[in-house]
Design a protein around this nucleic acid. Structure first.
Ligand code: ZN
Ligand code: ZN
Ligand code: ZN
Ligand code: ZN
Lengths: 171, 171
DNA sequence: TTATATATGTGATAACATAACATTTAGTCA
DNA sequence: TGACTAAATGTTATGTTATCACATATATAA
């Protein structure tokens, strides 16, 4: 993990390439998840909570089998459905997302509001940043409307090189 | 396959939900591929050509193992790399695309120009339409530029209900 | 021709994902 | 409380998607 720091960001910009107080970031996210689950009467059971904690701790996209390894170490079941079911719960309730390009999962950086996320995946350091994608998805929705296609869900992912890796390449 | 027909399209609109002269569509596409490969000094070998023909013939997203079945029947090798390598060639050279959401492949509807395609996937009839996505990808590129992320490739896919299936649902 | 690079065939295996069913746990209500 | 029900978890087995490694064949270049 490098500490090279790209330009500062403001609300509404992508999240994930900047340095930050990670412990605080985890705590905030868990609290938000607790609140959200209480409001929606969802059960954030131990294995689901641990799964979310691992996603937040790692702060990157994690495959289901890598997650399974973590869960096993934490004393939970050791078979694939254990991981897949917990991840499915988190994704279904907006606490995590699946990165289709990577067959991997990542914690949502702004859970609560329903949103169609967009991701930027660095092919060099494998970091993944989530952007609020209102306008990105918006133009897609317009294009779909024009032909009568009813969008229910979108997958918007970009692969490339993150700011930090771009800097390193120049150096 | 239904023959219900949504609104007509013009150039620049999505392709794939309308009825059309399929034989002509295949012939045109193969010719275009021949031309493109000649220009770029690419080798459209028998197995690669057959793979493209199958994608065009089926006119839908096809998994690698289904493709492998077709290739085996056509007298080619019967092991997974046969299909994956041919598909990789077609994708790398813009003659086909991978639909990440489906882990499947589809012929490009307008090969030649480098483009970042966007797809609309019907969850009812499994049809897939490719849209020219200049402005869709464009807004994503702007968002990435704002944080210094260098986009090299994009995955833009929408899942929902196509015009024909929407009509059927109403009826 | 000889050398070199590219492409293909094949067997084995890795990585990702789900079906089916038994067991346990959490909430409901007589 | 205990019996009932629904939800969640554990586990076995299997299905699906993708790649590695290496031998062989084919095309291109010197
Ligand atoms: Zn999110
Ligand atoms: Zn990077
Ligand atoms: Zn295309
Ligand atoms: Zn449809």
């Amino acid at each position: 993990m490098t500490s090279l720091q790209p330009k500062a960001k403001r609300g509404g910009n992508p999240v994930g390439f900047e340095t930050h107080d990670h412990a605080h970031c985890i705590g905030t996210a868990i609290s938000a998840a607790d609140t959200l689950c209480e409001q929606k009467a969802l059960r954030l059971t131990p294995v689901r909570r641990k799964t979310l904690e691992i996603l937040l701790q790692e702060h990157r996209a994690i495959g289901a089998y890598e997650m399974l390894d973590h869960l096993r170490e934490a004393g939970f079941g050791s078979q694939p459905p254990v991981a897949y079911r917990a991840l499915e719960f988190l994704v279904a309730n907006g606490l995590a997302h699946k990165i289709e390009r990577l067959n991997a999962f990542i914690a949502c950086t702004h859970p609560g509001a329903t949103h169609s996320p967009a991701f930027m995946i660095c092919r060099l350091c494998q970091s993944v940043a989530e952007a609020r994608s209102t306008h990105i998805g918006g133009s897609f929705i317009d294009a779909a409307d024009a032909v009568g296609f009813q969008i229910e869900q979108t997958v918007i992912e970009a692969e490339g090189v993150c700011p930090a890796c771009t800097q390193e390449a120049k150096a």
